[in-house]
Design a protein around this nucleic acid. Structure first.
Lengths: 249, 249
DNA sequence: CTACTTTTTGCAAGTTTTTGCTGTTTTTAG
DNA sequence: CTAAAAACAGCAAAAACTTGCAAAAAGTAG
């Protein structure tokens, strides 16, 4: 194997995983650890990657990502948020769930757009209050410590008496067969009520979460009207969802 | 696992939850507590986070209360909060309003004290959720943009069906003759309902606000059971309030 | 083809970094 | 004040790194 090839592989791995272990590289490339070490040293000198004790990382590695794991996720969420915001129009009454993707949506709503938003998420509510033209109504109830999300009978009852234009459901797990799934039973109850209360339901999902299934089902895909991902609507990854009467953007 | 990965995880957790325990980190990352300690020490030296006894916190933590700039005021509020916390006991069901003094109370509640707290204040709710033993129930409704406080019929109705041990009313204006006064009519409605729902009502007031009168009256002093100020209970400034059947501390 | 140089690679010895463990001191909470 | 938890300092083993060197591979010129 050529040195060029080796270094290309190393760079690819760094770009893909944002970090590599020298041992793994030596193992895979079937050369001594010293050779890999020298390669990485060279690449580091050319500023193509950053050498650290025991491995190498990409440059933006230490940048903060709210979502444990990878930095690309954040930019995907921003893309999704952009598409979602484009679906909103003046005067609408909207229901928003919690989750980091919905937070991005909240951040991205134009300052001048008048909306009425109901939400059971403390974080989303907090963010929405930055917008002077948005009337924020919090769906009160028992708050979950981790998610800072209100659950329980109070929330569900309030939702049952509500009729809104749009429901925007954030982070959930999505699969063509299993539909929308969650691991928290209490959250499910709230999300179901949210879907019932809305004329249309939009689901936001980064492509990583497509085809993932969790413990409990919130609803199946027939209950959903629009699916927003960071992918192009024609992407083959979305093929499994085409049989449903879904609007993909 | 690379040191960089560990440190990135630590930083992400700090940013996400505003505070982390070294034990939790060591546990999750599957390294000794010393290693985590060293990592946190390094990150602290780089000003990426703040090291505290037993864990680490992010820098901007709890900065959503705009600093009133006045250090004396702040320390007075802390004194009041200390006194107030001493009035709480295990298992109580408490109602808390908003305001900066109440925020101090929320910060000061012991981590191990089990309570159930109802509140219409986003900030107070957010702060209380840091305490694992406190069940937080948000009184949902239309949120005021400035105060981040829920008002309106929904809140009042919920309160009318509630019966709690204690109501802690934060920043209001207090005068022996005029009683408790406010300038926001909607907030008044909520505070009245809060007082009705509680067996006992505690009022927190820095001495600066004693003998001030606002536009509308929330209630008169006969509805209040305890008045907490930063002053000594024997202070002559409190003389005007002694004719009432008030507990001064 | 051969002799020579240059580059690349692996190895070994010694150094540095990292990590967990020890016992001791400091801080915290009841 | 006392007991428990956390922080600290020093040590030792393991892992990673460095350097120098020699063998193998590749290139070059006569």
């Amino acid at each position: 194997m050529l040195k060029e090839e080796r270094q290309k592989y190393i760079l690819d791995q760094v770009h893909l995983h944002h970090r590599v272990l020298l041992n793994d590289l030596a193992d895979f490339l079937d050369v001594s650890i010293d050779t890999v070490r020298r390669d990485v040293k060279e690449l580091a000198k050319e500023k193509k990657l950053k050498k650290v004790h025991g491995g190498a990382t990409s440059f933006g590695f230490m940048n903060f990502t709210k979502d444990d794991g990878n930095i690309y996720l954040q930019s995907k969420k921003i893309q999704i948020a952009e598409k979602t915001v484009s679906l909103l129009s003046e005067g609408q009454v909207v229901l928003m769930s919690g989750g980091t993707t919905n937070m991005e949506v909240a951040k991205m709503i134009p300052r001048k757009l008048p909306l009425t938003v109901f939400t059971p998420s403390l974080h989303v509510a907090m963010q929405l209050l930055e917008l002077p033209e948005v009337e924020v109504i919090f769906l009160g109830g028992k708050l979950l410590h981790e998610a800072k999300f209100a659950v329980g009978g109070t929330v569900v009852n309030a939702l049952n008496q509500l009729r809104v234009d749009l429901c925007i459901l954030g982070t959930g797990y999505l699969d063509a067969e299993a539909g929308l799934t969650e691991f928290d039973w209490e959250v499910i109850q709230v999300k179901r009520a949210m879907i019932r209360a809305a004329k249309k339901t939009i689901i936001l999902s980064v492509s990583d979460k497509l085809h993932s299934v969790q413990k409990f089902q919130t609803c199946d895909l027939t209950a959903v009207h629009t699916l927003v991902t960071e992918l192009d609507p024609s992407d083959p990854m979305l093929d499994a969802f085409r049989p449903f009467d879904l609007h993909l953007i």
